[in-house]
Amino acid sequence: MNQILTILAVLFTFPVTAQNPEKFSKEINEEGIALYHSEMTSWNGTDIFIENYKNRENIGGYFSYLDEGIPKCIFFSKSQKVIGTISFPANYNPKDAQIDLSERDFTPHETEYFTIRQNALKRMQNDSIFKIYKDTNLNIVPLIRNKVKKVYVLTATSAGNAVIFGNDYLITFDNENQVKNVEKLHNSMIVQKINDEKIGHTISGMHSHVIDKWQAITPTDICTLMLYQKFTGWESYTTISKKFVSIWNSDNNLVIMKTEDFKGMTEKMLKNKKGKSKTEKEEE
């Protein structure tokens, strides 16, 4: 483990672009951070709204978005009216949230979020690609960035001591907000424990990617790592595939390397370390 941590430390001393031949780590990282902001807003917004809104049967759903830099969680009724707007400061502190429970119409921008969310939900209810496992639920996360409309679907768990990766999906839309494509980002669901019976508290984690289109770390991976970092304390995380090794750290730095380059570099570093140890032993 110490050897792995040494390799990670060396990697993060180099510019990301030098390790990223495809030059897509920045885009993946930014998308993951955007997902995190949306999910963090929804996590906190849901708790606040449920505590303050009493007519539970009237709730139709929710979504979150950035409104001129302000994170907002929007709750709507079954009659498609906004019934709650929870606004947060940049630190997402629930104590500083602004609560507006007045009923109103969607803004034009909110209408776009609502439309793709509902169209995604309709597809989820009628497409067998979507799976739900025991003690989990699927979170719908609409995202509009650079005029591109997407919905990510993430798996969340009600079980403690676990972080869920995988069983996630990406839904894209055409100009009419109709579903254009649905795809899986991972081949399966990966459950990683925060505290392991044999080794105690885990300090990092790793999983593999096999889907050809998603060989690097995914935005959903980054979102999940950021959401649970305060519970896991993980300083780094790695995904491995035939093409790429992706290494994320808790400072939200991301390095993506070709797998062959990563293997060559680690073998060289370990060989040099072994040679150095042998020399030091001979000098004793």
Results as ranks from 00 to 15, higher is better:
78 K>F: 05
81 K>L: 09
61 G>I: 03
51 E>I: 03
48 I>Y: 13
63 F>K: 07
46 T>G: 14
51 E>L: 09
59 I>C: 06
43 W>P: 05
70 I>G: 00
68 E>M: 14
58 N>S: 10
64 S>T: 04
56 R>K: 13
69 G>R: 01
44 N>G: 13
81 K>N: 09
75 F>Y: 11
58 N>E: 08
68 E>I: 13
66 L>E: 12
52 N>S: 12
44 N>D: 10
58 N>V: 03
49 F>A: 11
73 C>T: 14
63 F>V: 11
55 N>S: 10
78 K>C: 01
80 Q>W: 10
63 F>H: 04
64 S>F: 00
55 N>L: 08
55 N>E: 13
60 G>M: 01
53 Y>H: 08
67 D>R: 10
46 T>V: 11
59 I>A: 08
48 I>Q: 12
49 F>S: 08
71 P>V: 04
51 E>R: 11
61 G>P: 10
70 I>W: 01
57 E>Q: 11
65 Y>A: 00
66 L>G: 00
81 K>I: 06
56 R>N: 06
62 Y>S: 10
70 I>T: 15
73 C>R: 08
43 W>Y: 15
46 T>M: 12
75 F>N: 02
72 K>R: 14
74 I>A: 04
75 F>K: 01
52 N>R: 12
55 N>V: 12
77 S>W: 01
70 I>N: 05
48 I>K: 15
78 K>A: 00
46 T>D: 12
46 T>S: 15
48 I>N: 10
70 I>M: 07
72 K>L: 07
77 S>K: 08
46 T>K: 15
62 Y>W: 07
64 S>H: 01
57 E>I: 02
73 C>V: 03
68 E>Q: 13
45 G>E: 10
81 K>D: 06
71 P>E: 11
69 G>Q: 05
71 P>N: 07
62 Y>N: 12
49 F>C: 04
46 T>H: 13
46 T>A: 14
54 K>Y: 03
60 G>T: 04
78 K>H: 06
79 S>R: 13
60 G>P: 08
73 C>M: 10
44 N>M: 13
54 K>D: 07
69 G>K: 00
79 S>W: 10
56 R>D: 00
59 I>Y: 09
